[in-house]
Design a binder for these strands. Structure first.
Lengths: 207, 207, 207, 207
DNA sequence: CATGAATGAGAGTTCATTCAT
DNA sequence: AATGAATGAACTCTCATTCAT
């Protein structure tokens, strides 16, 4: 296994593709989908323009691949948390922490993605073809569904009010996003997670 | 003479500029700032390309004008609410209702605007010039500031916990937005406002 | 005669047209033919856009009219000089003075005109239709022809060498133009005329 | 291998960029800066619109590049002449010949350039940005400065009158230009150079 | 006559994508 | 597989001209 990695060929093959993805991550995050240009990506990736189209069919699919590759480890961790045997209230805080970590790293890219998947109705209203958009929607169904599952467990455990878990999960999700985008989250992610979960769970009205 | 004005006159007097704004509203909302083209706007407004540039200096200022004209009545109502003499807890619910109404109408446009004002640092990271972005930011300072003021009043009235009112206001704002974007809000805006305010104030954990 | 002038109608009629010509003079001189816009002309003339097209068939004819109106008094004076009974050498200096005065006033406009009449061959190579261009060329034939006539008189009077009078006239003309454009001419137009005529007549080589 | 390069290689290597410059030369010369369109240039260059912008940042810089590339060999020859050890009077005639040759080839383009660098004061009075205009002015400072230097040498050698060399150089320059523009120069450039220098040096008045 | 809102042809420029090397 | 020169469709914006009032 080692000798394969050390052979320059395989090393470089993975590298070119990865360099492009890394560069695309930076440029898409900074500029958004439309203002990001392939020229800027290849400049940052230090590669040729044609190379991009060897690995990715077009700009759109490059973006999609980026999203999926960045998401995979986060999704894995989240699913693991859902499956864990723990009180739901504690899982909520841990989930918030996972989301905060993820968005602290990838928030800008996700903001771009979320902006692009709007306009589902019209054929060419978005840069994404009809089939692609559903794949992005699946991401929300999976991750926010995980949050909802935790809340559902809490209801079963009678530590959480009997509410609409999907709406609540989306609400929690949106608060996390806003905290990140407004740069309210500093180095103390754990503390922020605690505070966010606390307000979410117990409200801000005086008891 | 009056009835003549009302038949064709009033129709035509307000027409061109308003038609363009109406068309721009639809196209910007559906396509976002960059994918919206002047050609599509004029097709919808049933006017010539030059006419747009008679009324608006460029695409950006058309967008800005749109935002400000749509926002004005909402802002007025919000400020009136803040100034009213009422318990803060009730004001919160009324404010949520105002926001829900506003975003049910203009949510897509605001999503576009919010996407464009990101990337404040870089020069060309957004379609908006540096000076303009601050004007959009002011909108947030004003409206979310109003929410924060209501919460602050609640703290003074000892009906709301002593929390970071700005963060909390942003949190409430983001939840409202998400409810709208996820189409969780139907015809019963009042009911939704009640539910949202309830969860925000009292949390979802069982007491 | 006076009462006609004072009647507002006739006064204003002449005025509108003249205001437009005055404004056109300023704008064409400053911006050149293409960069001059009708909008800027009407702003300076304080009139409506349609009014321009009431008096002039289009931008091109406005320009042409301007040239001809500005030229008339100069041409008259020049023709008078040619016809005068005077030694040719003195006429040369006086003609130089006339040209200097004229171009000190209208040099920019003439530069613009001279630039526009190029590209005689191609149909649409210039902004001017084929027929129009010849009219401009006539101006040169008339005015430089006058200079040539003076030189020809000088040859007859044996005070000027037997040279190609047309070429020499164009040469003198070009020197005058250059003096004006390079702003080598100050308030002392007479002195400058003397110097220019002196070098033209006697050369700059040491005798 | 070499002959292959010479058949297609050398043709194609220099091709696109040079074709564009060649086409731009023709179109700018014929139409002037503003009436010249990129569409016409690419039609003549038989290339795509984007290709122009691969080689030149914009229309203005294409024009500037054209001017500089056309000027380089002429300037080199002129500077060599100035530095040569020869009587100034002979240098004058040789310089006139150089200028005649140059303007016989590039006169139309230079006329366009000269027209564009006017209106130095106003911001948008010309198609050229403020900083660029100075670069064009430098061309005059260099080339007419070279003429003036020759005249200055003549004064030192006591073969030329003590006159304002800069004004005189501009005068000579303008005469050359006019000869070319009026198509007074035919195939016998040497003869024309002799005549022009003769009149410039010794005047046209009878001794 | 005087007006100026409306117009659209046409300008310069950008950028995702292709393909010969 | 890697490249980047070549491309042209699509974009925003300008401005001379018209015409209903």
């Amino acid at each position: 296994m080692n000798y394969i990695r050390e052979s320059t060929g395989s090393e470089d093959l993975r590298t070119k593709r990865q360099h492009i993805l890394d560069a695309a991550y930076v440029v898409f995050s900074r500029k958004g989908y439309h203002r990001a240009t392939v020229d800027e990506i290849i400049a940052l990736a230090d590669t040729g323009k044609g190379t991009v189209y060897n690995y990715f069919v077009n700009k759109e699919q490059l973006f999609y691949t980026l999203i999926m590759e960045k998401s995979a480890p986060f999704e894995a961790a989240l699913m693991q948390l859902v499956a864990a045997k723990e009180p739901a209230l504690e899982k909520v805080e841990k989930a918030v922490k996972l989301f905060l970590h993820f968005f602290m790293e990838n928030g800008d890219l996700w903001r771009v993605m979320m902006h692009e998947i709007r306009g589902l109705s019209c054929e060419k209203a978005s840069g994404l073809k009809e089939g692609q958009k559903e794949k992005y929607q699946d991401w929300f169904n999976r991750t926010i569904g995980a949050l909802a599952q935790i809340l559902q467990d809490g209801i079963a455990q009678e530590t959480i009010r009997d509410c609409d878990v999907t709406k609540s999960a989306y609400g929690l999700f949106s608060v996390i996003l806003m905290m990140v985008f407004q740069k309210f989250v500093g180095d103390d992610i754990s503390g922020m997670a605690h505070m966010t979960a606390d307000i979410f769970l117990y409200g801000i009205a005086k008891k």
